[in-house]
């Protein structure tokens, strides 16, 4: 029986980060408590973050979580 494909999350983290004066991937990683590589994977849409990480990222940009992450079905 084929497995149901896991839904992925689209996000606008890169746009929000670059719009926030000079914030680097490392800065964002330090603020949300992950490695820079995780931010890289996240921005490329290759990694689906945990709920806690999604909430922390939304808080950094002072946005609602669903304004940053969108379910891609």
């Amino acid at each position: 029986m084929p497995r149901k494909k896991e839904p992925t999350l689209r996000n606008c983290v890169r746009e929000l980060r670059t719009a926030t004066d000079g914030m680097t991937q490392q800065d964002l990683a330090d603020r949300v408590g992950v490695t820079r590589q995780t931010i890289v994977a996240l921005e490329r849409g290759e990694y689906t973050p945990s709920l806690a990480l999604a909430l922390r990222i939304a808080r950094v940009f002072d946005r609602a979580t669903d304004a940053v992450f969108e379910l891609d079905e």
Binding site: T38, P49, L53
Partner: peptide, 10 residues
Amino acid sequence: GSRVVVDERD
């Protein structure tokens, strides 16, 4: 330092 080395993705 204070930098995260291992995170949830790892």
